Simulated assay, not measured.
Amino acid sequence: MGNESGGGTAGDGSVSVERRGAIALITLDRPRKRNALSTHLERELQRAISSEEVTGSRAVVITGEGGCFSAGADITELREMTPRAIADYYRSSGGVYEVVAALPQPVVAAITGYCLGGGLELALAADVRIADDEAVFGFPEIGIGILPSSGGVTRITRCVGTGRAADLVLRGRRFGAVEAERWGVVSEVAERGQALSRALDVAAEFAERDALALEHTKRVLEMSQEASLAGSLLLERLAYATLNRTEA
């Protein structure tokens, strides 16, 4: 069963969510704007994430309609915001990227076409990224005098290291799927047209695993990036002790 959120005009786009067994498939559907992430589309994504299809799933796949993951944020909309409006934005629809990252179940991004700016920030909020071999990545924000601010700078730095992140963000240059895999931005490159199929296969693997073990391991992976060595080891052991008291 699937449903589609409403509330905007056809040009605003929508986000559909459907269940495929234990997997929830979320699709950005604004192809005429290359799935640009307007505040409307971000709100639709928040609604999709809070739907029963997602909350009752064992794994989540996010993709884009029309052969494009997302070409970025809706810059014309953001340009009109005052500093106060921007602060309010990050407390509302702009916080959806962290909602994705905080999902208890594994999230897989199936990337085709453009994955730029806010689109790449959304993909980086997923746990696993699988790209079509013709996918194009990049953070173009520096070219218009801003920076990736929905987790982009933070997550790309943790993903590829400070030196590589500086090269990508400060130059705003685009890179392809082969480079993305070599640098660890994506975990796998699929043949043309196969990214979604492979993402669903990976999500199916997750759906067969113990849900609590996956959730705890996600949190330890995330927190270990900020914790000291001793703190990270303690997190591992506490999580293990908690899981060892449960029935698989």
Rank of each mutant, 00 (worst) to 15 (best):
R171Q: 13
F137I: 03
S232P: 01
E134A: 08
Y97P: 02
E222L: 14
H216M: 13
G145Q: 13
E191T: 14
V186Y: 00
Q225S: 14
S51D: 14
A109F: 08
V220D: 12
G152V: 09
V153W: 07
A85H: 12
I142V: 15
Q194W: 07
V185D: 02
M223N: 15
V153Y: 10
V169F: 08
S224C: 14
G152K: 06
Q194S: 08
L124G: 08
Q225V: 15
S14A: 14
Y114M: 07
A126R: 03
G231V: 11
I26V: 15
L221T: 12
A211P: 00
S51N: 05
T157H: 00
R237W: 08
A102Q: 10
G113K: 02
A213C: 01
L124Y: 02
D201Y: 07
A165V: 05
F69N: 11
R30H: 12
W183E: 14
A211T: 09
A203N: 09
I23D: 09
K218F: 11
T154E: 13
R192E: 11
S92N: 14
E226C: 04
T157F: 00
F206Q: 03
E191C: 04
A204E: 15
V128P: 02
Q194N: 08
A22R: 12
G56M: 02
I62K: 05
A180K: 04
A110N: 04
I144K: 13
R84P: 00
A135C: 06
R58G: 08
T112C: 01
V153C: 05
V99L: 09
A180E: 07
G143M: 08
F206W: 10
D29W: 05
S232L: 01
G119Q: 12
A131D: 08
E134S: 10
D74Y: 10
E42H: 02
E53C: 03
R171I: 06
A190V: 14
Q194V: 09
